[in-house]
Write a protein that binds this DNA or RNA. Structure first.
Lengths: 249, 249
DNA sequence: TCCGGCTACTTGTCTGAACAAGTTGGGCCT
DNA sequence: AGGCCCAACTTGTTCAGACAAGTAGCCGGA
């Protein structure tokens, strides 16, 4: 937290959280904030841009910024590991590896992980819990260049992401997530302790290093009674497109 | 598309889509792009910041930017109506109102829509289709100040959002979405044409005007075999936090 | 050969300024 | 009273420059 604009963003977040600015009220003007914090307008703009991206405040040309949301939930647009996520909610994450095996990469594997076809990839089946209750079933495929480090981790490690950072300096920086719902199969039901055909929230994801190199891809199934995701969004430039663009069917 | 930085962002998006820059390759340096487009570095930075937010490219201090994703899917972080969404996928949206009734606002309604308790709110039950196939069941509650305009819309209108813009100049600018999975109930099953207990993707959302005024909130249930959502994300400052912060359990 | 440091390059941060474009509210005119 | 217009305010866009901080590749020494 060295950058001044991040400090200011954090102060504003806390002020909103404290309800110094209530939902629906207006933020001070950029020039006022700039004078208050003793920085230039550009720096203030960087700070409020962050809050806008998070969906905390709304922005339009000519009008003061408005506070949209108060309590800040763990948003999906912030990538973090299961253990981190649990931590921010004040709960304790656990994990347990059920199976671990090398197989040659299928065409799907090599496409997603940008590997040559047939390269050995590590398949891991892992159950994860929140405060001891099983909530998530992970079927993960790791690229061969990280697989040995993954194998070295003990089966009950609560945060694989954390361990890979500590041991290898590997940071999971980017993710793409595909979300849908599926019915629990026989294996899902048994391992998660739910009835067959129970609805599960499925997240298929690919995770990438800071260099843009894919590390793993995974099929994660969450017990929908225990977990849900939140997403903030906005039209951005789309409002303009809707004004001038062709009619939408 | 007046702003120069948006034009540049769009050109870069198309270049990535055309695979002038393939996935995993490096983008030109900011100074090169600035010289190429004849703008200052700040303008280029705005353009690439947009692509970074969309998850198309990755960025780290000291190293050139890297292309992360190629084909651009309809991301969840772009708020758009069901009809717009269908349009971008080249499919045709339809809609049909099944019931419409005023009720006094429950405490939940008044909290979500920022209305006085007991204000009349309009409940609408609507089935929506993609190319004629039923895929979505919407249970929406509209605030009293927009309800008359909603009632005036014919029951078969494919895009309520579009109509509210045309008739009232109302733009849905911000949204908050809560995503989970549920089993289809009796009514869900009948209206969507699926078996009871089929998994459905549920999205509970609140939509807000540009001024930050809540317009509607809705419980949307999607047939999970027909629809899925995608989300890009990144660690942002979290990579730093992970370095210096306390151990994560 | 391998490891170290050094250097050139690249992105991140911040400033101060100027103008464009949109919003809001008050005052004036009808 | 109602409606219109304008003026003050606010955010959006863009520029040019300076320095900080991190990366990657080159080169030399052990």
């Amino acid at each position: 937290m060295a950058a001044r604009h991040e400090e200011i963003a954090e102060e504003l977040r806390q002020a909103i959280d404290r309800e110094d600015y209530t939902v629906g009220s207006l933020l001070p003007a950029e020039t006022e904030l700039a004078a208050h914090y003793g920085v230039s307008r550009g720096t203030v703009r960087q700070a409020v841009a962050a809050l806008t991206a998070e969906g905390l405040i709304g922005s339009r040309q000519g009008a003061r910024r408005v506070v949209l949301a108060g309590r800040r939930s763990q948003s999906f647009t912030e990538l973090c590991s299961f253990a981190q996520w649990a931590h921010t909610m004040g709960r304790e994450a656990s994990g347990h590896v059920l199976s671990s095996a090398y197989r040659p990469a299928t065409p799907e594997d090599s496409a997603r992980l940008q590997l040559p076809p047939g390269a050995p990839v590590l398949h891991i089946l892992r159950v994860r819990g929140l405060d001891g209750e099983r909530v998530l079933l992970e079927r993960t495929v790791y690229a061969h260049w990280i697989a040995p480090a993954v194998e070295r981790i003990e089966p009950g490690c609560p945060s694989v992401t954390q361990r890979l950072y500590e041991d290898e300096g590997l940071v999971f920086a980017y993710g793409e997530h595909l979300i849908d719902a599926v019915a629990a199969g026989a294996q899902d039901a048994e391992l998660l302790g739910v009835r067959r055909t129970s609805p599960l929230l499925r997240v298929r994801r690919v995770t990438t290093t800071r260099e843009g190199r894919p590390v793993e891809w995974s099929d994660d199934r969450y017990r929908s009674d225990a977990v849900s995701f939140s997403v903030h969004n906005s039209t951005g430039i789309n409002a303009l497109a809707r004004k001038t663009g062709p009619a939408v069917s």
